[in-house]
């Protein structure tokens, strides 16, 4: 059998559905685009600056880390770009450059790379970074302070902050349609509800995110907000308001669904989503922060390994002694 012609040998299967991590990253960025474009349209060049700088920084940090740890360069998979983009979407348009630089460092290095890179992070890297920034430099990402120089054609008070301090009377001007169309202040890519919903539905239909998580998250938010609302309609806003403000929608479709930090089995996905949604409202209504999405999702990221232990019984398992 000494033939010059050799064939490539490998293990079955020999087909692949051609999906890849980079394709997935591209689709996530594509889905985020409507909301991002709306943000840039509303807040102009500064918003564009934050978005582009954040994406580049995130990729830069990943590259640095690849070189330092002497591992294959992985920015091609687009995951760093996604993290950078999502991070920017959560920030106010006027965020100073150094916050973006530090934030992306925290996201990529502390949030992801020190655990071993993509797939190994226990928490959502974007949220890790945002949480740290929120705790350290709160004033820079306080929307009312940051966006004080903007006067767009709608109420410029950050809706959740207004609600927290003045009750439902302060938010009576907001209509559901207005909120959907992005007529509210907030993060660059977090206010255009319709755009986020379209992006999210796109990702769900294409199978890039798990619908169970998004849906149960929204249901969790809705039900909890609804219960608060009927108990005291003056202090607590209605469920629709909560669904369309703050980070709820971006959380449901882009943050809670981050692969590595969310469960993959059916029941755990439902518990995870509903739990995070419920805690979002608990923090908003009785906690210290105006928006609870960040900490609620992080909390359930921590619970994820535990939740994912609830798994279906494998075929034939346990039959030996039957």
């Amino acid at each position: 059998m000494n033939n010059q012609k050799l064939f490539i040998s490998s293990h079955a299967p020999y087909w692949h559905n051609m999906s890849s991590i980079s394709a997935k990253s591209c689709h996530i960025m594509l889905a985020a685009l409507p909301a991002v474009i709306m943000g840039i349209y509303q807040y102009g060049i500064p918003a564009l600056g934050v978005v582009t700088f954040s994406v580049s920084c995130a990729m830069f940090w990943e590259l640095i880390m690849n070189l330092v740890t002497k591992r294959p360069v992985s920015i091609g998979d687009g995951n760093a770009a996604v993290i950078g983009l999502l991070f920017a979407m959560l920030l106010p348009a006027t965020t100073p450059w150094w916050i973006v630089l530090i934030g992306t460092f925290l996201a990529i290095i502390i949030g992801k790379e020190i655990y071993g890179g993509i797939g190994c992070n226990p928490l959502n890297p974007t949220l890790v970074a945002l949480a740290m920034i929120m705790l350290s430099w709160k004033s820079y990402i306080d929307f009312d302070g940051a966006l004080v120089n903007y006067d767009l054609a709608f109420l410029m008070k950050y809706p959740l902050e207004a609600l927290k301090h003045f009750g439902t009377s302060a938010i009576s001007e907001h209509t559901a349609v207005g909120l959907l169309m992005g007529r509210q202040s907030g993060g660059i890519g977090a206010t255009f509800g319709l755009g986020l919903i379209i992006g999210g539905l796109y990702l769900i239909l294409r199978g890039y995110i798990r619908w169970e998580i998004s849906l149960s998250f929204l249901v969790g938010v809705f039900v909890t907000a609804f219960l608060f609302n009927i108990s005291d309609p003056v202090t607590y806003a209605g469920p629709v308001f909560h669904l369309l403000t703050g980070y709820t929608l971006i959380g449901a479709f882009f943050l809670a669904t981050e692969d590595s930090s969310s469960p993959v089995n059916f029941i755990p996905m439902l518990l995870y989503g509903a739990g995070a949604g419920c805690f979002t409202i608990l923090i908003r209504n009785i906690g210290a922060f105006a928006d609870g999405t960040v900490f609620a999702i992080l909390l359930f990221n921590v619970a994820n390994p535990l939740l994912d232990k609830i798994k279906p019984k494998a075929m034939g398992k346990g039959l030996e002694h039957a």
Binding site: N3, L6, H11
Partner: peptide, 13 residues
Amino acid sequence: GGPMTGNAIYSDE
């Protein structure tokens, strides 16, 4: 064998 379960071989002998 087929695309999902076959065995790759290195020689056409």
